[in-house]
């Protein structure tokens, strides 16, 4: 058994953060969920800038697209053009099902793109499948 995954969730909606937290609490993987609520904070966290100097490098990032201050696309672009950070998988996790957002995200280097299901059970299932795939099945660089 590997050590627990460090997940960085970038989402400004506390209701969604609550649902993700709730879903992950019911899986056997014991992943650590770290949450920031905008793009600036996300970059600060990844670069271990203040106030995140103690931050742990995430195993993967769950990134919402529409965020205050700096949106998810900006975070994605910067992360994937940074040689030190680009190997961190980014899962776009957003309400938007727009093809425009989907294709733009892939162009910017998103590893995958999941829409938040509108139904609670589907939402929980999606979060759990996401965690299972990246924690249990995919190999991630340290």
């Amino acid at each position: 058994m590997r050590r627990p995954a460090e997940i960085l969730l970038v989402d400004d909606n506390p209701a969604d953060v609550g649902l993700v937290c709730d879903a992950l609490a019911r899986t056997p993987y014991g992943s650590h969920l770290n949450t920031v609520s905008d793009g600036e904070e996300a970059m600060a966290y990844l670069r271990r800038a203040s106030p995140f100097s103690e931050a742990v490098r995430p195993s993967f990032v769950m990134l919402d697209l529409n965020l205050p201050r700096r949106d998810g696309r900006g975070v994605l672009a910067e992360l994937k053009s940074d040689a030190g950070l680009r190997t961190i998988p980014v899962v776009v996790f957003t309400t938007s099902g727009s093809l425009r957002d989907i294709s733009r995200s892939y162009e910017l280097g998103a590893n995958c793109y999941l829409t938040k299901p509108g139904n609670l059970n589907d939402f929980v299932a999606a979060v759990q499948a996401l965690e299972a795939f990246w924690v249990r099945y995919a190999a991630l660089p340290d």
Binding site: L99, R100, S103, S105, Y113, A129
Partner: peptide, 24 residues
Amino acid sequence: LYWLVINQYPISNGDKKAEVRHGE
């Protein structure tokens, strides 16, 4: 299941591809 069912893929055929360009 993860990649074909849960994941949103950007392109699959000509029509979708055209919509991608449109979206861009």
